[in-house]
Computed example of a mutant assay.
Amino acid sequence: MAGIGSLIGIGAGLLGNIFGGIGSARQREKAQTQLDNQIKENENLFNKDYYQDILSRSDVQNLLRNTRNRIADANKIASNTAVVTGATPESVAAQKKNYAKAYSDLVSNIASQSSLLKQRAEDRYLANKNILLGQQADLYNDRASQWSNVASNAGNILGAFSALYPLSTNKQSGKSLSGFADNPNEIPKTKNSNYTDNIFLA
């Protein structure tokens, strides 16, 4: 009975491991879904930052708009001042040209930062990708370990069953599994043993 108890104990452990594995699988599924979302978000962020037009960014647009407004105000002031001071139209035009060049230089300097922003976007993307790939590997290893434990426990219960009930012990009252006695020279007895004895005594 102790052996049967051991078998039952191992079987209960196997069932516990299976049900525990089901719960773990659900948690892994949730973790995998979250990880897939993070991978997608990382790719979307990279595409947004890497392929963006730097001049179309809202902060850059605000800077350029404010600069244009200031230049327009400065040109208006220059024109009004020229009327009062008697400055020539050429001098006013030269001043406007200088403002226009300053604005053009500003745009060029901003555009030149595009390659730097692309490099930063790529570096950030690769760093996040390595982290996410590590998390993916952990999920794969956890899944493989869970199945390994289930297979190991299944092997244990089969091994215990074989140990408790080996084929060599499947004998009752000196009879083998085939119904014959262990002694090959012994005549197997039938239910009507007297009839069998009479045949060989005749």
Rank of each mutant, 00 (worst) to 15 (best):
L63V: 10
K40W: 07
A94I: 07
S91G: 09
I10E: 02
A93M: 02
N66G: 08
D49L: 04
I54T: 00
G16H: 11
D59I: 02
Q113D: 09
A74Q: 07
G3A: 15
N130I: 01
L7M: 07
Q135R: 15
T81V: 08
K40T: 10
L45A: 08
N66Q: 13
S115W: 10
Y99G: 00
S6C: 12
Y103H: 11
T67C: 04
A94C: 07
G3L: 13
Y51H: 11
R26I: 11
A87G: 10
Q95S: 10
G86I: 01
A2R: 15
K101H: 12
V60I: 03
L35F: 07
Q113K: 14
G5E: 14
S115N: 08
E43C: 06
T33Y: 12
S79C: 02
I54R: 02
G23R: 14
K48F: 05
S108R: 14
G16I: 02
I131D: 06
A31S: 10
Q95G: 07
A82D: 03
L7T: 05
K97Q: 12
N62R: 12
I77Y: 15
R65M: 11
I110R: 06
K76T: 08
N17R: 10
G5P: 14
G16K: 03
A72L: 02
A94R: 12
K118R: 11
N98D: 13
A2N: 14
I18H: 11
D53I: 01
R120I: 05
V84H: 04
A31L: 04
Q61E: 10
R65T: 12
T67G: 02
G9N: 14
L14H: 03
